[in-house]
Write a protein that binds this DNA or RNA. Structure first.
Length: 425
RNA sequence: GGAGAGAUGGCUGAGUGGCCGAAAGCGCCGGAUUGCUAAUCCGGUGUACGGGGAUUUCUCGUACCGCGGGUUCGAAUCCCGCUCUCUCCGCCA
């Protein structure tokens, strides 16, 4: 959510930004609602002020004067109730409209409609030339009995799966590797709840209920299965005021992620690329309300993501996501796309991580502010998030890139201490 | 899951219908004084939103005593619902 004042003062910039992001918003409606809200609040304040006056007179008034004063007070009570209803109505409408306005965009982010217009910042690693026809991860998993899709579908439905045998060890190894790395990078390690309240989801920018939701919600509660630990890590300091000298805060969260993938039916594809549940190690950062500070952490997060895939020796490219593909909360977003030899006709890059700087877009809704010692007032912190390892997609990249002519799959060296073997099959 | 207790400002803690944005103490900030790592005294000390004034420190109003409703002319105070914390019991990995 953008600051209302900012939005009103920078109408043209906001409109241009919305156009770049492919979002239509009714700014004039927002401005009109803002004025109506402000007017209604002022009227309410005045009414309450008068009511207080009347009430204060009552204890001192003579018995003869009292009934008239009480009657006057009652009148104010009714007027105030009507005013409150009006304010509430206006605010609901205003907020709904305001929430549709996406975050502003980093000046260096490419302007474009969809992913095709995103910019490849750099690529790493040599794409391997196979002297045999490489299998995709589904075929490899079947060959080595690594994933049970049929039982997943039987027990929980399409999109769920069982990892088996070395795939289990691989997932644990990826988690371990990421956790160790992030600890060295100064992140505080967390395992997080896999459920979170509606209000936390909304604060982060998810839409927990309704027809287009990507979220599984728990019936007759206000709880939802989280789609990412970004939700639970971002919720930790909800409504808190942080000490600016303690920033930036760098958190790492291990959680399951649940996504309905509604509307993705056509893109569902095979295997574990797009599933309803997976395990992920996530980075989350809080910085001072300063673009230089959050940009710096943003680059740090991307650097760590790259170092993880460099350590795994998997080729990847870094994408600077274009305006049309940023979603609501992100000010700028970098994705890592890993080379997946079994994808498409002859291999394709597939998204494995995503790193966003959300500036104060999330913190404003979550009420996370920081205070600078003696300085007056508070400011909304900047929040960032990035994937360290999304296990399913990392496993795809490993299986497909590390397969051998004889059908076996090597284990990346850095994972061997946890997998315990250097080869599958 | 059952029974009970509680939630007040940075902290401790008073306050059971109007004079309470809220005593007192601690802490913190400013000043005075004494000079020996301290004591004493005086003053100040929340946040948000809005109006007015002002090139800083100003002023007025409204809201906030866990959250949300209700009663009342008037609620920190009474009533209802919820959340959280603590204690005891049960259950459980």
């Amino acid at each position: 959510m953008l600051d209302l004042q900012y939005l009103c003062d920078n109408k043209d910039a906001v409109l241009l930004n919305c156009r770049n992001r492919g979002v239509t918003v009714d700014l004039d409606k927002i401005l009109a609602l803002r004025d109506r809200r402000s007017q209604a609040i002022q009227e309410g304040d005045a009414l309450r002020h008068q009511q207080k006056d009347v009430s204060a007179q009552i204890p001192k008034a003579s018995a003869a004067d009292k009934p008239a004063l009480v009657a006057k007070g009652k009148e104010f009570r009714e007027k105030i109730a009507a005013n409150e209803a009006l304010v509430k109505e206006i605010e609901t409408e205003l907020r709904a409209e305001q929430m549709r306005v996406p975050n502003m965009t980093h000046p260096d982010a490419p302007v474009g409609k969809d992913e095709n217009e995103s910019k490849t910042v750099r690529t790493y690693g040599e794409i391997r030339k196979f002297d045999f026809k490489p299998l995709d991860h589904v075929a490899l998993a079947e060959k080595h009995d690594l994933i049970d899709f049929a039982s997943g579908a039987k027990v929980a439905g399409h999109g769920f799966y069982y990892l088996k045998n070395e795939a289990v060890l691989l997932e644990m190894a990826l988690v371990q590797f990421a956790l160790q790395k992030l600890r060295k990078e100064g992140f505080t390690l967390y395992t997080t709840p896999d459920l979170a309240r509606d209000e936390v989801l909304v604060g982060i920018g998810f839409n927990p209920r309704g027809p287009e939701t990507q979220i599984y919600s728990i019936e007759s509660t206000d709880l939802n299965l989280v789609a990412t630990a970004e939700i639970t890590l971002g919720g930790i300091y909800k409504d808190d005021i942080l000490d600016i000298s303690k920033l930036p805060l760098k958190l790492c969260g291990l959680s399951h992620c649940f996504r309905t993938e509604a509307g993705a039916a056509g893109r569902a594809g095979r295997g574990i690329y797009r599933v309803h549940q997976f395990t992920k190690v996530e980075m989350f950062g809080y910085t001072a309300a300063d673009n230089a500070a959050s940009d710096a952490l943003h680059f740090e997060i991307v650097r760590i993501e790259e170092e993880i895939f460099q350590a795994l020796k998997i080729p990847y490219r870094v994408i600077d996501t274009c305006t049309g593909d940023l979603g609501g909360p992100a000010y700028r977003k970098f994705d890592l796309e890993a080379w997946m030899p079994g994808r498409g006709e002859a291999g394709e890059f597939g998204e494995v991580t995503s790193a966003s700087n959300c500036t104060d877009y999330q913190s404003r809704r979550l009420g996370i502010r920081c205070k600078q010692g003696d300085k007056k007032g508070t400011q909304y912190v900047h929040t960032l998030n990035g994937t360290a390892v999304a296990c399913t997609r990392a496993i795809i990249a490993i299986l497909e890139n590390y397969q051998q002519a004889d059908g076996s799959v090597m284990i990346p060296e850095v994972l061997r201490p946890w997998v315990g073997v250097d080869r599958i099959g």
